[in-house]
Design a protein around this nucleic acid. Structure first.
Lengths: 254, 254
DNA sequence: TAGTGGTCTAGACCACACA
DNA sequence: GTGTGGTCTAGACCACTAA
C-alpha cells in the first residue's frame, strides 16, 4: 500500500507545521494520496476502490473529507462513482474516449468511433517543435505513427502521432490498436488525463490530399493535440487533418 | 421576493409527496429557487447575495444544503464566491467573456479581446436554418449584424450575428458594443449561460475574402455558435469566419 | 438484507477581507 | 473585531444495487 503522510492531523485544532507552506486543505492532501495510487497503478483501471468508510478510517480522517476528495477526482473523470455499487477507477473504454477526447462528429449529430488504418510507423529523432511539446531530452528519440481514420466508407482524418519512444517500448513491434489510450493504460500504465487542442484551417498539400482522396488545396481542419498524463507530463503529440464536409468539431462552452 | 415551495420538508423524515415525482434532492430544489431569482433579475449581475446563513434560515434548510446549491451555481459560472467577501452574481465582463467564450487566441498564446467594426445591421425574415436554431415562430423576424473583428492591425474574423428581434428591441437604433453579451445582461436582462460551437474548415469566397483582405479561396475556420440563456432558450446564432494564419482555436479536453 | 454512495443536519473552527 | 465563505467532523437517514 502506498505510504502517506498528512501535513495536518485529522482535527484542525491539532494542526501543526502550516507556517511555511500555504494553507492546504485536508481533503486536497487526501486527494493527492489517491492520485499517487492511481499514478503508481496501485489502483488500476476498472478496479473498485475500498468504500468511503474504509478509506476514512485507513487514512484517519472523516468520511466527509474522503468524500470531498473522491468527488473531485470523479469530476475530473479519473474515478466513476455509482450509487449502491461503489467507486471505480475510470477506464479508457470507447464510450469515454468518444465523449471526452473525440470531438469530431458527423453532421447528423450521432457520435461514432472511427476506424483507423496505419500507413506508417517509424522511430526517429525529434524536431525542435516535438522536443519542446513533449519535453524531451536533447537527443531523445520518438516513435511516429501515421494513420487514416474514417467514420463511414470514405477517409476523414489523416493522423500523425508522435510519442516519446521511452514510454512506449515495443509498440512498433505489434499491431497498433484503434484505441491508443486504452493501450497506454493497460500495457504501459499511463493514464491520459486530459489534452489541449489547437485548431487551424489549412489547405491540404498534394500528398495529404492524396491520402484522403480529395483534391489538393481542399480546406481541412488541422488539430494539434498534446495529451497529458495524470502527473501532468506530456505523453503524445498528435496532428490530425480532418475533412469537414460532412462532419464538424464540437465544442461546448460553459 | 420570489415565492418558493419545496417538495420535501427540510428534514427527510418529514418528507411527503415523493411517490409521483422521482427523487429530487433538497439542494437541487434550493438551486432551482436561486436560478429563478437569477432569471427574473431579482439577483442582478454584480449583486452580492445574502450570506449562506441568511439564505438557509429564509428557505428553512441547513446552511450545508444552501452551500451545495451555491457551489453548483458557482461551478456553472453563474455565481462567483469569494472567501471573506461574499457570493456575487457573475458579470459578463471582458475577462469572463475572454476566458469562457472567446477561444481564438494569437499563436503567441496571450489571449486578447478583439476590436470590432460593424459593417452591416438589418432586420429581416429568418431562413429555415435560423428558425430552427433559434426556435423561432413561423414568421418571426430576426436582426442581423455583420462585423469585422481584429486582434492587432489586420482583420481576423468576419462575424455574422443573428438575433431574434423580439428579445433585443431597439438594438439596431444605437451603436453595437464590442461586448454584446454584456449588453444583453444590462439592457435586456438576458444572461448567456453557455454556448455550443461547431467548427469546420472552409475556403473563403470572393466577398468574404475581400472583407478580410486576403485572396479568395484562403482557408478559414468557420464557427457556428448557438448561445443559450439561463433557462436554456437560444439567444443568438453567430457564424464566424476566422483566419488562422496567426491565431488558433484553443480547446481543453478534460 | 447488507453494503454502497448520496443527502441532510448541526456545530465547531479556520482563512480571508475589510473597516 | 466582525462577518464572510471554506473546512472538518459526527451522526442519521435515504436511494440504489446485488446477493
Amino acid at each position: 500500500m502506498t505510504e502517506h503522510k498528512l501535513e495536518f492531523a485529522a482535527r484542525p485544532d491539532q494542526a501543526a507545521g502550516a507556517e511555511i507552506l500555504g494553507f492546504r486543505p485536508l481533503y486536497r492532501q487526501v486527494k493527492a494520496i489517491f492520485v499517487r495510487r492511481l499514478v503508481e497503478g496501485v489502483w488500476a483501471p476498472g478496479m473498485a476502490l475500498p468504500s468511503e468508510g474504509q478509506l476514512a478510517s485507513e487514512i484517519g480522517v472523516s468520511q466527509g473529507t474522503v468524500r470531498k476528495a473522491l468527488d473531485e477526482l470523479a469530476a475530473e473523470n479519473l474515478l466513476v462513482r455509482r450509487q449502491g455499487r461503489g467507486t471505480f477507477v475510470a477506464e479508457h473504454d470507447e464510450r469515454r474516449i468518444l465523449f471526452q477526447f473525440f470531438k469530431l462528429v458527423p453532421d447528423d449529430g450521432i457520435p461514432r468511433f472511427p476506424d483507423s488504418r496505419v500507413i506508417g510507423i517509424a522511430g526517429g529523432g525529434a524536431d525542435p517543435r516535438e522536443r519542446q511539446a513533449l519535453e524531451l531530452g536533447e537527443t531523445e528519440p520518438v516513435l511516429r505513427i501515421r494513420r487514416i481514420r474514417s467514420l463511414g466508407t470514405s477517409p476523414l482524418v489523416l493522423e500523425t502521432i508522435v510519442l516519446p519512444a521511452r514510454i512506449v517500448p515495443g509498440l512498433e513491434d505489434g499491431p497498433v490498436p484503434n484505441n491508443l489510450y486504452s493501450l497506454f493504460a493497460t500495457r504501459y500504465g499511463i493514464t491520459v488525463a486530459h489534452a489541449r487542442e489547437r485548431l487551424k484551417a489549412v489547405a491540404l498539400d498534394a500528398e495529404q490530399a492524396g491520402h484522403l482522396g480529395v483534391a489538393p488545396g481542399t480546406p481541412a481542419l488541422a488539430i494539434d493535440r498534446i495529451a497529458l498524463s495524470l502527473d501532468g507530463s506530456p505523453v503524445e503529440l498528435r496532428t490530425s487533418l480532418c475533412l469537414t464536409q460532412e462532419a464538424h468539431y464540437l465544442s461546448d462552452l460553459r
